[in-house]
Amino acid sequence: MDLKQAVVLVTGGNRGIGKALVAEAVARGARKVYAAARDPRTVTAPGVHALALDVTDPGSVRRAAEQTGDVTVLINNAGIYVGASLLTGDLAEVRREFETNFYGPIAVTRAFVPQLLAGGGGRIVNVHSALSWVAFGQSYSATKAALWSASDAVRLELAPQGIGVTGLHVGYVDTDMAAAVDAPKISPEAVAAQVFDAVEQDRDEVLADDTSRGAKQSLSADPAQRYAAMAG
């Protein structure tokens, strides 16, 4: 893909990884960049189009699609962390996390795929997590595992129509969401650079750090070994 001809939309484009993705798209010369957020006034990046979008609100998703029409690269980045116990946590909070992290990207993808098709194809990027593959995040991990599986399903469905799907897996990123975590973190800028490398090279997966690479390798281990390691 030639990013200089691309029109990029980033959900959750006002902070964290999303803000870095917006800046990277601008730096690489994308033809147009939409930074979507629930409150577009929080989008401060120069040279971008701020767009009101709440991924959990069907009306907001529909209006955002109506206000654009030219998107060729869709990045489903918006997400929240609740991390509730699936057994004892507040079920309303678990549902809220799924509405944002799973159903949100599905709804946005359904709304914007017609634009990608009208442009002759394009690429969707879904922000998964290393926690798609390990259960430390409890309900959060479940939402990201579901999105990982959905990305595979959507990839198979859209490939014959010229639309690719890239999944980003990454561990702790140096953003507000992980501010309280005392562990090695990758910068959001380094993540964004790897994402757009993958977009330009039409790659389907980004393993952005050692944590995500190790998590993927663990999938081939015996389940008893995997869960013993997580319990430890």
Rank of each mutant, 00 (worst) to 15 (best):
V173C: 01
D209C: 10
A52F: 00
K185G: 07
R110N: 15
E24D: 13
L3K: 13
R155S: 01
V10S: 08
D174V: 04
D2S: 05
A192Q: 12
R203S: 01
V43L: 05
S218E: 07
P58T: 11
A153H: 05
D70M: 08
V206A: 01
G29R: 12
A65L: 08
G120I: 09
E99N: 15
A178W: 06
S132Q: 04
A159Y: 01
R62C: 04
I106F: 14
A130T: 01
T56W: 05
V55L: 05
D90Q: 12
A190P: 02
S141Y: 10
A30L: 02
A178P: 03
I106Y: 12
A142C: 09
I186Y: 00
S139R: 04
R123C: 03
A64E: 11
H128L: 14
R110I: 15
V26N: 01
A35F: 12
V195K: 09
S139N: 10
A193G: 11
L91S: 15
E93M: 06
D152N: 06
L53N: 05
A118R: 15
R213T: 00
K32W: 10
G13K: 13
E66L: 15
T56M: 06
F102K: 05
I124P: 07
G29I: 06
V26S: 02
A118P: 07
V94N: 13
G171M: 09
A64M: 08
K4C: 07
R95G: 08
A231I: 02
D54Q: 10
Q201S: 11
R226E: 03
A198Q: 04
V55F: 02
G119D: 13
L168D: 09
V8I: 06
R41K: 15
A228E: 14
P223A: 12
A146T: 10
L207P: 08
T211G: 09
D197E: 15
L207D: 03
T175Y: 10
I75Q: 06
A150H: 14
I163N: 03
A64W: 13
L53Q: 07
D209Q: 06
V206W: 03
